[in-house]
Design a protein around this nucleic acid. Structure first.
Lengths: 120, 120
DNA sequence: CACGCCGTGTAGACATTCTAGGTGAAGCAT
DNA sequence: ATGCTTCACCTAGAATGTCTACACGGCGTG
């Protein structure tokens, strides 16, 4: 009956949340709740964005000048804080995307069989 | 003159080092120093494995029963601790590999343009 | 015999996520 | 009216794992 945690989901890797938020805001400005939902949906419900991670991350990004906040009303007529990418944020997004691709590529290289690993 | 940190390298994401170590030991047993070198080489020198991360990770994996240690001598005739995968470790490696692939796939999905993002 | 490299190790700082709480208000049903 | 659910925000504290920066002994070479 209770909102049980889905077995299928995965904990975030430390450092990936910023990237996901920035990327999500590139599409369009959004409030926190919507950002989380968007990330979860766009990942086919693999990624899980906890509120206790989301809001500190949002505040962190504002502090660093990568996103900017503005008060507004949600689609459901509730008070909400809309966030948008700043130009510094766009630059940061490019940097983090590159870094992620390099890292994912490197790990993929290690994960698949290395030449010489299997006896000839 | 001094061993300056390479600009090109990337910090590890929290949680990835275990996977890399296990995967490296699947190929063959090795001592700590060699594991680090292997990871760095196999990633085309993108990944950097710091000693302060490596040894705690190794001890952690032993504690969890995923790898086992044995004293021996290195190729250079120095005292060294050789680590090998246990069967529990092999199982863990499979689990972590799957998890990584799911996660990397999910992030990749978010990173590339989503349908509907660009105005039709 | 000084020096560099090999190989191991630890302490403490740091960053980020998670768990687990909490607030207030809108909208619906009773 | 009153309760209930959902939306949307927030925070404290624990847990985790990495980093920087040390330290040490031994081997082989110049």
């Amino acid at each position: 009956m209770s909102t049980r945690r889905e077995e299928n989901r995965i904990d975030l890797l430390q450092g990936t949340l910023d990237l996901l938020i920035l990327r999500t805001l590139l599409a369009r400005p959004a409030h926190g709740h919507a950002i989380a939902k968007t990330i979860e949906r766009n990942s086919d419900d693999v990624l899980q964005v906890e509120q206790g991670s989301l809001y500190p991350a949002l505040h962190r990004l504002v502090r660093r000048g990568w996103i900017a906040a503005e008060d507004g009303l949600s689609e459901n007529n509730r008070r909400a804080k809309y966030y948008r990418l700043t130009s510094k944020g766009r630059k940061q997004l490019r940097a983090e995307t590159t870094k992620w691709e390099k890292l994912a590529g490197a790990i993929a290289r290690i994960l698949r069989p290395v030449s010489g690993e299997v006896k000839p």
